[in-house]
């Protein structure tokens, strides 16, 4: 199995608040890894470390190393823009830009300097197809993205991310704002995407984690308590805190 990320001794704090404590973990290529744990334990914070979105927060301090294919992504020489092109992100709340559906998907491509209209169009269409949205929007690519339903908007955000052909897609509770049917569609989609991308997903739904992920990491108070193949975590968790959380006894 191929290691994609190798995280060692990561500590992160917002001002005086120590949020991630001595994190050590390896994440694998073309697998779905789920981060679970009670609210406020640092899952989102850790997820945002992989595309350095925490850089935007002034008070945030991070040490330790995160290697992506043996390169330290926090090295000064590592270009953040390159990193973010390579590591896409889907957020909890669907956040399409106030532009047309087409422009939303083309946004990242245009920013990265692709100008050729044909290439753009092809990549937009491919991304929409890959995100299982194309059939629903093919006739109205020029309509405002805000005219889509919540579930469609979220798939648009996924399309927008995969249009960049990243290696990794980070998803922070991508279905928590959606109804069960839209959720099922996204879960199906993740199943598909797994072939081409490495996916790291934060979720509060135990069912979701057990259904779609290959690996699961259980977080508690900024530490990784248990990390294993999903089946092991859900069938015989080693740590009692993990077991309690999964069975719904706390959190």
């Amino acid at each position: 199995m191929n290691k994609l990320f190798s995280v060692s001794d990561v500590n992160l704090s917002y001002g005086d608040k120590h949020v991630l404590k001595d994190i050590n973990i390896d994440l694998y290529k073309n697998k779905v890894t789920a981060f679970i744990g009670p609210s406020g334990c640092g899952k989102s914070t850790f997820l945002r470390c992989f595309n350095r979105m925490n850089d935007l927060i002034d008070s945030c301090k991070i040490d330790g190393t995160i290697l992506m294919e043996n390169k330290d992504i926090y090295n000064k020489k590592y270009d953040v823009v390159d990193l973010r092109t390579n590591v896409g992100m889907v957020f909890q709340k669907p956040n399409p830009f106030m532009m047309s559906i087409y422009e939303n998907v083309a946004y990242g491509l245009k920013c990265s300097g692709i100008k050729d209209k044909k290439v753009l169009k092809q990549r937009v269409i491919n991304a929409l197809k890959q995100a299982a949205l194309y059939d629903e929007v093919s006739t109205r690519l020029n309509d405002s993205a805000l005219s889509l339903s919540g579930g469609q908007q979220q798939r648009l955000c996924i399309a927008r991310a995969i249009a960049m052909k990243p290696e990794v897609i980070l998803m922070d509770e991508p279905t928590s704002a959606l109804d069960p049917i839209a959720t099922a569609k996204i879960e199906e989609l993740i199943e598909e995407l797994k072939k081409d991308f490495t996916i790291i997903i934060v979720t509060h739904s135990m069912h979701q984690a057990s259904r779609i992920s290959d690996y699961t990491a259980f977080f508690l108070n900024g530490e990784i308590v248990e990390y294993d193949i999903t089946k092991n975590i859900f069938q015989n968790p080693k740590d009692i805190r993990c077991e309690n959380y999964i069975t719904g006894r706390f959190g």
Binding site: N51, M53, D82, R84, N95, G108
Partner: peptide, 11 residues
Amino acid sequence: GLKDASLSLGA
């Protein structure tokens, strides 16, 4: 959220 989305796309 929109700013984050834009930056996360490598803008």
